[in-house]
Design a protein around this nucleic acid. Structure first.
Lengths: 252, 252
DNA sequence: AAGTACTAATTGGTCAGGCCAGTTGACCAG
DNA sequence: CTGGTCAACTGGCCTGACCAATTAGTACTT
């Protein structure tokens, strides 16, 4: 309840500062940044720190580092990074709502294209999921495989990637603890049943049914999630390194 | 047509190696990695290099670095980075197809929720776009504002982010040059007309119409893009640092 | 015996300075 | 004007060191 300190690491601050200068247009697209040594001097930090900050921006796709030449601004907009520290603006419900909208459309499209091989892939994920409802990590993996498997039916790599990214977003430390109170084989089995309904609708070529089943699944997922609210901030232990690692969150 | 040379930077190689160990499960989720000093020794590189590699993985959301404690595996799946070097598996058409599916659903949803303020925001983007059809960079910015503006109507931060990310994906060096041959005020004006149709349907609360208009827009965008094929590999110059920076790609 | 306060080892964060390799542009010979 | 050389950047990587946060162990108190 206390300390908002945070004490961000220095290279993060430097990265933020440069990112801001790019976003504001102070550093135009295509322009070359000052040399690492100059940046270090201007910002009063060491060169390694500047390098680490620039690597962050490079991974984010904002700048392009060319050896021996310089560092160039590639794009202006953040192209936000998937993992790590996202602003808590995107809450669990927001994420699930977005998934509902997008994955419903994907399921609808998939229903009209599914071939036997695709269904077999979904079945494999379902079978695997059913066998590991007691393993919090393995069951998440099977869950993920099912959702990305539906996107794979459409045969579009971008859709597969986006679906996977949205799924992975709940793995963040922030999300991780929220659902640890209501997880269990029982709720996983409920999720599995909903998965089966989706699978059947897609296998039958029922576009509307697949869309409805997916919406029902994510709605139920949201409800399971909301039921865990009100108690998630009860205990603040589990900081030790030997405790259970970050488990899953909501069944989807 | 020649040199595929690459000579990946060392810290990239280290990052790839660790990423692989995580993906293969050799480093389990929640597990603590060896200390930076140990990793440096085991990999026969210096500690700064290890640090840079770990920062890459942290930005990607794969690991969680805790000062004084250690480095922990957060998730197993790549959660692919948005910018930089994506596999060329995702081509322009794949991207546009994915956008068609997702943004149509968003437009459909937005039509039922749009308030006067939202429409005003879209109009602002349209006006701005009309005024800068000759500025390849500024027009892209207005284009982006329109598409994310539609997502904003739904009021979901995740949707806004995903829409923006997909838009930004064409800024990559790979995509950038592809469309430089057919860009121009004329095609931008066509895109602007299609935008207006989408705006009108949303303003009228016509969900089906908004969906159709968005689909038409992205289909046309795809067509404009395909017309530029067959000639995009004609000239390979424009490497100089003072040339025009990466311009836009397809009008959307 | 249990809990607490303190201490020491471990680990990431930052810095300084240096050398190497690739890039670039100016200069010079043909 | 063409081609090659060369020197001045610029990023890539390294060594070694110190600081700060965390954590585990220990001695002390209750």
């Amino acid at each position: 309840m206390f300390s908002p300190v945070e004490s961000r690491r220095l290279y993060r601050q430097v990265a933020d500062q440069i990112r801001l200068m790019i976003a504001s247009g102070e550093l135009a697209v295509g322009q070359r940044l000052p040399a690492e040594r100059d940046l270090a001097e201007q910002l009063s930090v060491s060169r390694p720190t500047v390098r680490e900050a620039l690597i962050v921006l490079e991974v984010e796709g904002l700048v392009n580092i060319r050896m021996g030449s310089g560092i160039y601004v590639v794009r202006q907009h953040a192209a936000t990074v998937t993992g790590a520290e996202r602003e808590p603006v995107e809450g669990p419900f927001e994420l699930l709502q977005a998934r509902a909208l997008i994955e419903c459309a994907i399921a609808e499209e998939a229903a009209g294209r599914a071939k036997p091989d695709d269904i077999a892939l979904l079945d494999e994920a379902l079978t695997r999921m059913g066998g590991v409802v007691n393993d919090a990590i393995a069951v998440l993996d099977a869950d993920r495989a099912f959702h990305t498997g539906i996107a794979a039916i459409v045969g579009n790599a971008t859709l597969i990637r986006v679906t996977g990214e949205m799924f992975d977003m709940r793995m963040t430390p922030y999300f991780a603890r929220l659902a640890s109170h209501f997880e269990g084989p029982t709720t996983w089995r409920s999720a599995l049943d909903e998965h089966r309904a989706i699978r059947d609708a897609i296998a039958a070529g029922d576009a509307a049914g697949a869309k409805a089943a997916m919406r029902a699944h994510l709605t139920m997922s949201q409800k399971r999630f909301s039921e865990s609210f009100g108690e998630e901030f009860s205990g603040e232990e589990e900081r030790g390194r030997n405790k259970r690692p970050s488990k899953g969150t909501a069944k989807t």
